[in-house]
Simulated scan of single mutants.
Amino acid sequence: MERDVSVQEVMDREFVGVSESDDLRETAELMLDEEADSAVVMRGADPVGVVTERDALEAFVRAEGESADVSEAMTDSIPTVAPGMTIAEAADEMSALSTQRVLVSDGSELLGVLSEHDLMTASPFAPTADGPTSGGRERAVAGVSAGRGAAATEPGGEGRFTDQSLCEACGSLSRDLSPFNGQLLCADCRDI
C-alpha cells in the first residue's frame, strides 16, 4: 500500500517574495524573470497577500500607464494549509475555496506555495481494483474521479460526478462536473 503524499513533499519552496510598497511594474518584471505566475507579498516575515499575473494585468489596464504599488493589485485573502496535509486534502481545500494556489505554513513560518499545477504534476498513481490495463493494474490519480463513464456505472450516479476532477474547458479542479456537449464541465463553464 502506498503512503499518502504530503503537501510538504510537493510544494514549491522557492517563491517570489515582494513587499507592499514595491513598484508593480518591477514586480511583474521579476515574476517574468523568475518564470513565476505569482508573488507572495510580505510584511517583514509575515505573508500579507499574493499578487498574480492576472492581478498585475488588471492593475496595468486600470492605471492606464500610471505607476502602481503592489498593495494596489494584491489579493489580501491568502488561504493556508499545513505542510503535513495530504495532497488529496489540499486539493479538496483548494476546490472548496475556489483558489489556484495556497500558502503552506506551519503556523509561524511560511514554508512554500502549493499550486494546482503542483498537485497535478505530483499526484501519485495508485492501483485500484477496477479492471486491468497494461501490466494488469488500473492506474488512477489519487483524489480524482475515474473520469467519463464513472457516474453511469455507479448506482445512483445519474450523470453527475461525485469526486473531484478537471474541467475539460478551463482546466480547474472541481467537484461539480457534468457532461455537457460531449465534455465534462464545471458549473462556470456550463453557464457560458
Rank of each mutant, 00 (worst) to 15 (best):
E26S: 12
T27V: 08
T27A: 03
A28N: 04
E29Y: 11
E29R: 15
E29V: 15
L30T: 14
L30S: 10
M31C: 06
M31T: 02
D33H: 13
E34N: 11
A36R: 14
D37K: 13
S38F: 08
A39H: 09
V40I: 15
V41Q: 05
R43V: 03
G44A: 06
A45M: 10
D46P: 02
P47E: 10
P47S: 05
P47A: 14
V48E: 08
G49S: 03
G49P: 05
V51R: 00
V51E: 01
T52V: 10
R54E: 12
D55K: 00
D55G: 01
L57N: 05
L57G: 09
E58Q: 11
A59H: 00
F60H: 05
V61E: 12
V61C: 05
A63K: 06
G65W: 06
S67T: 13
S67L: 09
S67I: 05
A68C: 14
D69A: 14
V70R: 00
V70I: 03
E72N: 01
E72R: 04
A73I: 00
S77A: 08
I78D: 01
I78A: 03
P79R: 00
T80R: 14
P83Q: 06
G84T: 03
T86H: 02
I87G: 01
I87S: 06
E89W: 04
D92L: 12
D92P: 02
E93W: 02
E93T: 02
E93H: 01
L97H: 11
S98T: 09
S98R: 13
Q100G: 15
L103M: 03
V104F: 02
D106V: 10
D106E: 13
E109R: 15
L110W: 00
L110D: 00
L110G: 02
G112S: 11
V113W: 07
V113N: 07
L114G: 01
L114P: 00
E116Q: 15
E116V: 13
H117G: 11
H117T: 15
D118M: 07
M120H: 07
T121R: 13
S123K: 06
S123W: 03
F125Q: 14
A126L: 14
P127L: 11
T128C: 10
A129I: 15
P132K: 12
P132A: 14
S134D: 10
G135A: 11
G135D: 11
G136I: 10
R137A: 12
E138W: 10
A140N: 09
A140S: 14
A140L: 12
V141I: 12
A142G: 07
G143E: 02
V144I: 09
V144Y: 10
A146E: 12
A146L: 12
G147P: 04
R148V: 05
R148G: 03
R148N: 01
A150G: 08
A150E: 03
A151L: 00
A152G: 12
A152V: 10
E154H: 13
G156P: 03
E158C: 07
E158V: 07
E158W: 08
G159N: 08
G159C: 09
G159M: 08
R160F: 08
F161M: 09
F161K: 01
T162E: 15
Q164W: 04
S165M: 09
L166H: 04
